[in-house]
Amino acid sequence: MALNALEQQALTDLDLSRARPFRLADRLGAVRVLSVGLLILAWEIFGRDVNPLFLSYPSAIARATMQLLTAGEFQRQALGSLQVYAIGLSAALLLGIALGLLMGRYRLAEYILDPYVYALDATPRVALIPLLLLWFGLGPMSKIAIVFLSGLFPVLMNTFSGVRTVSASLVEVGRAYGAGERNIFAKIILPASLPFIMAGIRLAVGRALIGIITAEMFAAVTGLGALLIRYSSALATDKFFVPVIFLAVLGVILSHAVELWEKRLAPWKETERAL
């Protein structure tokens, strides 16, 4: 809002010095950068003094990254992990959404399935890893299974509660306009529960990533998880940080991607919330 003439006059009269006294709270961006910069600097300086078997330091990690990338080993393992991840997660999303819709809409399906769903949802999925390795061996199948199980429940539970929250009045609108069950499903229930489903997907993406790394670490044969175990048992701390950083970046990218996707698919939700 622009000041009017009287206000300008008042300001001149008051002669308030425009410069506020220095306050840290006005320079939060700088504080952030400084905080990160100082930590990295301290790490570099003190990290060099620590036994390299226990802690590496930033420039050594950068060197290790270059080395691993030129050798091509890292890319190969990362690709293997990502393939397994993609297959398992897609299966989890498809089945999770389907079962969630089914359980949300039909009470019979709900009562038949919910004992298992609740029990498995409360059981830490990582506890199933030894069993899955026993069943499916050390190959990709056991990892796909763990990714699938890790991703399934967040999607399923969210879809289910999404369908449940779709207000009866919206379904009534559909009925009033003569929509059949199919149309009600496709044109009312699915779009209305979409924000919930997307929230479930966001959770699933992170959980599945944890699932695959844990499984790979446990089996210690292939994938990024196996690299983590290999480098740590070889006491190569500089190399160890390479997959760690890659996974952190991957986690951030994936969750941002889902958020973007969420905004595109359900833009009305945002404004509704803001209102």
């Binding site: 000041l3 008042a10 308030l16 506020r20």
Partner: peptide
């Protein structure tokens, strides 16, 4: 009594003269 409110995102820019003299 005088009181001037400054813009939230630009603390050097006056946004409103809430009280004047």
């Amino acid at each position: 009594l005088s009181k001037v409110f400054f813009e939230q995102n630009d603390p050097s820019k006056p946004g409103l003269v809430a009280l004047y003299d």
